[in-house]
Design a protein around this nucleic acid. Structure first.
Lengths: 262, 262
DNA sequence: GAGTGGTCTAGACCACTTG
DNA sequence: AAGTGGTCTAGACCACTCA
């Protein structure tokens, strides 16, 4: 066991009211913030911290678990605890559904990924008819059954987003939209070909901690929230023609919107 | 110590590979999801869980800490562990900075809160000149010094948002904008009176876990992320006239945006 | 004062990774 | 085989809340 390089981590203040495990977490956090442990670097092992601070192992683990839930570090079984690397971020611009992009034929996700020099994939694509949840149903004008299209997006091999599109059956049944691959420009291009000229999209954004299922699907490390985005597409007659429910790894995204001052 | 009502929580599966503390967390999570513990309800005490499952206290505490970081429960010292109550949610619409709202004279925050039947306050208002961070400076066209306006918003007594506005000094110095209370319609109304007619706003949204400082300022319970929103206001000449950096308690907000399909 | 969660100890054994 | 984190035990004492 290597000795801890001196000076990186200080000593405890026995006169402080602050719990020992919080003091240890504070010191490690500060060392990370000040760049003494850089992104991806390995922290001292639990055993080293036990020796350095003269506390029990559970106390050290408690400190590290704080930093994990803050999203500062990740632990890897058998290897160590590391400063969490920041993945490349995908920027979603508010013009990402503009018609001019659709007309170029490629899906928005793939085009943007290529522009950023990333390799992107789409997997676990499922298409089928089902009964919508109350929320989805209400947004679509209360259809009894809908077409659901589920898919997961990966960026350089890492899952970053899981999305489900819902469309009223009378719109989508027996159309290319019901096919796994709907063709160039995606389902929005097909909707317009079918006579549903799109007028606008409404997006609702929340952030929260992931469910255990979402942790698995997106392979999220602890301390990473999700962005939950629900988009409703309206045609020029004011009808809701699609609802897209999207869950994104929050550390992989920044969403951008432009608002008129009018 | 009251006995645990039978049937609410099951037994452990000793043949399972899943760690005991995860199994316990799974069972409590499922009970919450199925409504057997409703919002605000008290969970069985740690001692009751120890007895029910026949495990040590640390194992039970480990289970509960999982549910805490998931944002499902909150613990209160000396009282118990409770299903986390969902606070009222503030909806931010994408037309919230429309000129017609400004012209009514009240701040957007107060108007919306009143409409929702909530009591709102603004506190810890600080106004002063300072040197901007690199990021803020770049967004504002690299001024050396800026006017900073910090304030915290509360809804029914609960802090929900902390925001700082930055304006180039040459715009704001010796104007009502440099006053703690800038007058009816807020700083955007003042900017327009000063000849900076607003054209549009760009907003960037991220979500992440809060820093310890943000936990204190917003009194966040564990398992609640923050939404970090940075808005830049542009005048009709294309100049960035303000940057507003906002940190929101994610469980108190849903953001809504409308995108044109054009 | 009884019940609750918060902190901490000193061990034990296991599973995973690396040389 | 050595080092790492993952799980679990059986205690102890403390601080807070409520009757």
């Amino acid at each position: 066991m290597a000795a801890l390089s001196p000076g990186v981590l200080g000593a405890l203040d026995p006169t402080s009211d602050r719990a020992v495990f919080r003091q240890i977490a504070d010191q490690i956090r500060e060392a990370i913030d000040k760049g003494r442990f850089t992104e991806g670097a390995k922290l001292p092992s639990e055993a080293e911290l036990v020796e350095h601070y003269g506390v029990s192992r559970m106390t050290v683990r408690n400190s590290l678990s704080i930093l994990q839930t803050e999203g500062l570090v990740v632990s890897e079984h058998g290897k160590g605890v590391f400063v969490r690397p920041r993945p490349p971020v995908r920027r979603l611009a508010s013009d990402r559904f503009a018609r001019r992009h659709r007309e170029q034929g490629k899906s928005a996700f793939l085009v943007e990924a290529e522009a950023a020099g990333s390799k992107s994939e789409v997997d676990s694509l499922e298409v089928g008819e089902e009964r919508p949840s109350q929320d989805i149903s209400a947004r679509l004008g209360s259809p009894r059954r809908v077409l659901a299209r589920r898919r997961r997006y990966l960026l350089d091999g890492r899952p970053v987003e899981f999305a489900t599109s819902y469309l009223p059956l009378d719109l989508a049944r027996n159309t290319p939209i019901a096919q796994p691959n709907p063709g160039p420009g995606g389902i929005y291009a097909r909707l317009e070909e079918l006579g549903h000229r799109l007028d606008h999209f409404d997006e609702e954004i929340k952030a929260r901690m992931p469910t255990p299922q979402e942790v698995r699907t997106l392979r999220l490390s602890s301390g990473v929230p999700v962005i939950h985005l629900v988009r409703t597409a309206y045609d020029t007659e004011g009808r809701a023609v699609e609802v897209c429910d999207t869950v994104m790894a929050a550390d992989a995204y920044v969403l951008a919107y432009r608002l008129p001052a009018t």
